[in-house]
Amino acid sequence: MLLYAGQRLAAIVPTLIGVSIVTFGLLHLVPGGPAVAMLGMAASDPKAVAAVTRELGLDRPLPTQYWLWLRRALGGDFGMSTEFHVPVSSLLFPKLEHTLILTAGSLVYAIVIGTILGITTALYHRSLFDRLAMLFTLIGASAPVFWIGLLLSYLFAIKLRLLPALGMTSVLGPPTVLSVLEHLILPAFANAIIALAVIARIVRSAMLEALVQPYVLAARARGLPRWRQVVVHAFRNVLPDAINITGLQVGFLFGGALFVEVVFGWPGLGYLIYSSIQARDYVTMQAAVLIVSGVFVIVNLAADLARLALDPREARR
């Protein structure tokens, strides 16, 4: 188990290096090069281009540039935002926190509703409820996040006026936990639907398989009540699958936040990437993409290790 965990940890190092190279390279793939891209309309002035090139060290060889960029990034220094003229890190980390709040909210929806839906549809396999729920998950998993977000926003915020449509806290009065939660309900649900549908489907099929295992029959024959057969025996063996797929979903929830944040005006990393793309603030965008990739890799690793720890057969390897 420890050996395997060590191997997995070691394996993410090359992944992260690859991610950093691609992220770094993105900037240099922009037509005309980074300096021209950043200046936009002002790029017609060669003096300005030369100034930016010098300022960002773009005149040095690429490997040197990469090495300098990486060394500073590892120290938490991502350079200055060309749009907001503040250090990118001071923009990034508060936004990361907001995005993590949105991701966590979506994750709670996806896990709780997805798991309950998966278990109940497996128990009522082939019933009308099962069919309707599966149709819902099929539609949910196929629909784009921003479209669902717009629909939810239109229905609950604009038509029914039940929930706020935009932002993270109320503009009236001081920000409270309660007002954040209130603002979280719609965007988190919109973001959760795909993951919820995927979790529900995986849990359902794994439960269908687990429920017919001999140990569930034996538990029944030994006089255990139905709920223990379902939860303690069948669902326990679905957990590794459920955690595995949930771990993968965390990454996608994190990515889905990008769209949802724009639809619901949620001040997170996704909104930051969106606005930095619009403002041609490639330094900020680059840093945000790097952070997103790093979080994605680490989350998947954590999910993998959790799955191992929960399956004794795997843990003993």
């Binding site: 001999p214 140990y215 024959a221 006089g223 326990r236 063996n237 957990l239 057969r313």
Partner: peptide, 24 residues
């Protein structure tokens, strides 16, 4: 049935290893 299962009528199965939950 639950009152009878195990307590009145015990059962053992062909593959005993599979009749125990692998996770516990």
């Amino acid at each position: 049935m639950r009152r009878i299962r195990g307590r009145g009528i015990g059962m053992i199965f062909q593959n005993a290893r599979l009749s125990f939950n692998p996770a516990y």
